[in-house]
Amino acid sequence: MWKALPKCAQGVIVAPKCQHGTVRESDVTYRDLICEEVQFKGHNGDMGNAYYARPKGDGPFPGVVFIHHLPGWNEVCIEAARRLAHHGYSVICNNLYFREGEGDPDDIGARMRAAGGISDEQMLGDVAGAMAFLRAQSNSNGKVGVMGYCSGGRHTYLAACRLPGVNAAVDCWGGRVMAPAEALTAKQPKAPIDFTKDMNCPMLGIFGNDDKEPDVAQVNKTEEVLKQLGKTYEFYRYDGAGHAFFDWNRPSYRVEQAVDAWGKVYDFFARHLR
């Protein structure tokens, strides 16, 4: 559903509320966490490393695969995994670049960028493996969502369409969900939007209206396709925000919009994964 964007007193438009005191974190938080690096079985049975964060205790906990972005398996994504764990989820953020070996995440990310990234098929195999890892744990409630920023958002969209067993998906400003023919490559041979008919889980979309990739027209088009195909989705679009507005250590950070949108994420996952 599309929500109207009311304007708040400061002139910043956020969806759907921006009065102080109306934005809150999830009611349920878990201060005791267990966070560790684990091994998981990915595409083609390859064994890779992953960050695994979950609340202390027997559960049952819903699972989330947090799909890292193009720049790599870095702190921003690891932190998002820990954040979701704090709110009661068993979260795995698997290293999509493990086949490149050890190294600083930004160095490996730069190398992968120069190589044209990883293939969509490999990514899907790795995410399927991460989902299986979560469901195999004794603390699992059997449900698993996927979430990602930027290219991780694009990957989330693909996973929602192409992987069985995804119970909910959160696409944060995933670009190139639509892609012109000239943008398609051997590694990314088909635009995610073309798989939309196969989407079999609810989708939450978080977007900044100042973003150029995806821009407002692209988000409109994505929404149009979701609506035409009768998919269950919620899109929230924020004025005064562009790309990567969750990144607290970057100039793109927008505190009010980010806090509100995280609230949307907690609410969405609670409704579909608990």
Binding site: H69, L70, P71, R113, A114, G116, G117, C150, S151, G153, R154, W173, G174, G175, R176, T185, E213, P214, H243
Partner: peptide, 9 residues
Amino acid sequence: MCSYITEKA
């Protein structure tokens, strides 16, 4: 979004 568009020399 981050892209894979690069120039190389």
